[in-house]
């Protein structure tokens, strides 16, 4: 099963229409965080360190729909926290599907099997299961033994019941490229639609500041993984983004392309940094000094960041250029990212 043509067409039409209109900044994916509560306590996570009364809060479905409609992005990713812990997550997903948004519900998989009955298979809904590599690496990264096996079991169940399933992998310092290549084989054998992979980001507020990859190490790692990609690997992300991670493309960040909305409001400037909140997406666009962010800005917090939330929208935008179409076609047909 591949990304539905309707989704590709929706994204293509959306990006092209914005380019033709000369829209300088537009959102591609809304990161909708309905809660920060999680059933894991990963040492590398900067999203879950809050007092209990904050972790108990959550967005209502109505707040989610208002954010989605105001923002207008065709794709909505629902991370967290663990979204399946939200008591009204089924209403949120149903409302987004009704609005014809393509939803990626991110989950660590621990609750997926038992919650599957809440959802109906549709081309508009994908479960994006967090898998940080093979069993040993994954369980170590999420600080809980047995999570890999539970997630794999849930993936099989979801695929068997007709749901779209992708995986989402964050790579950290010390990753063995050969083990990741083997992991990609394993995920494809499970029958997932595609995989997403990104280097981790060192959250300024995360307890763990030392096992995130720097820029050169990131490029070296991804070159090792993708120099000879296997033909059966499928990725649910832009080929140009993979080329960027390998150091073959030089892009700058488009933080407005994947904006974040959560219980605090619209997060400035991006999914990874928390420098403040505003009430509307338009206010975020208008009141943020975007020249302060990205590699060219010299901002230290941006210097090592190559994360998909900043560079996937750049890559997708570049896909709709002559050179981008050629490189994407080459990756699709010849299976080469070089």
């Amino acid at each position: 099963m591949a990304v539905p043509i309707s989704q590709m067409w929706t994204v293509a039409r959306y990006v092209l229409s914005n380019r033709l209109r000369g829209t300088e900044r537009y959102p591609l994916v809304l990161m909708l965080e309905p809660l920060f509560r999680c059933n894991l306590a990963c040492a590398g996570c900067g999203k879950i360190q809050y007092p209990a009364h904050i972790l108990k809060r959550q967005l209502s479905p109505e707040q989610c729909f208002a954010a989605v409609e105001e923002c207008g992005a065709p794709l909505v990713s629902i991370p967290g926290g663990e979204p399946l812990m939200h008591p009204r997550i089924d209403e949120i997903v149903a409302g987004l599907v009704e609005r014809k948004r393509y939803v990626y519900l991110c989950t660590n998989g621990l609750l997926l099997k038992e919650k599957l009955d809440l959802f109906k298979p549709t081309k508009f809904l994908s479960f994006s299961v967090h898998m940080d590599g093979p069993r040993k690496e994954h369980d170590f990264a999420v600080c809980r033994m047995g999570t890999y096996d539970i997630a794999v079991d849930a993936i099989k169940e979801a695929i068997g019941r007709g749901f779209r399933v992708t995986t989402n992998t964050t790579l950290f310092e010390g990753t063995d490229p050969n083990r990741i290549r083997g992991f990609f084989d394993d995920m494809m054998k499970l029958g997932v639609e595609g995989m997403m992979v990104s280097p981790g980001y060192s959250y300024p507020k995360a307890p763990d500041q030392q096992h995130f990859l720097g820029r050169e190490k990131t490029q070296s790692l991804f070159r090792s993984i993708f120099s000879k990609p296997k033909r059966h690997w499928r990725f649910n992300q832009s080929s140009l983004f993979i080329r960027y991670l390998m150091g073959h493309e030089q892009y700058d960040c488009t933080p407005w392309g994947i904006p974040t909305y959560n219980i605090f409001g619209w997060q400035r400037p991006c999914y990874l940094q928390q420098e403040g909140y505003v009430e509307t997406y338009q206010e975020l666009l208008d009141s943020t000094d975007w020249s302060k962010y990205g590699h060219k800005s010299g901002n230290q917090k941006c210097s090592n960041c190559m994360v998909h939330s900043g560079f996937e929208p750049t890559s997708v935008d570049q896909t709709f250029t002559i050179s981008g179409i050629w490189k994407t076609a080459k990756a699709s047909v010849a299976g080469s990212y070089i």
């Binding site: 509560r37 999680c38 059933n39 894991l40 306590a41 990963c42 040492a43 590398g44 879950i48 360190q49 209990a52 170590f140 600080c143 809980r144 033994m145 307890p207 763990d208 500041q209 030392q210 096992h211």
Partner: peptide
């Protein structure tokens, strides 16, 4: 909740034949 603390917890657990894990509060 530092990475060092997690690594130390893993090392201590392994030394005593146990499994280290972190759980939400």
């Amino acid at each position: 909740k530092s990475w060092e603390a997690w690594q130390q917890k893993v090392a201590e657990a392994e030394a005593s034949g146990k499994i280290a894990e972190l759980y939400p509060e």
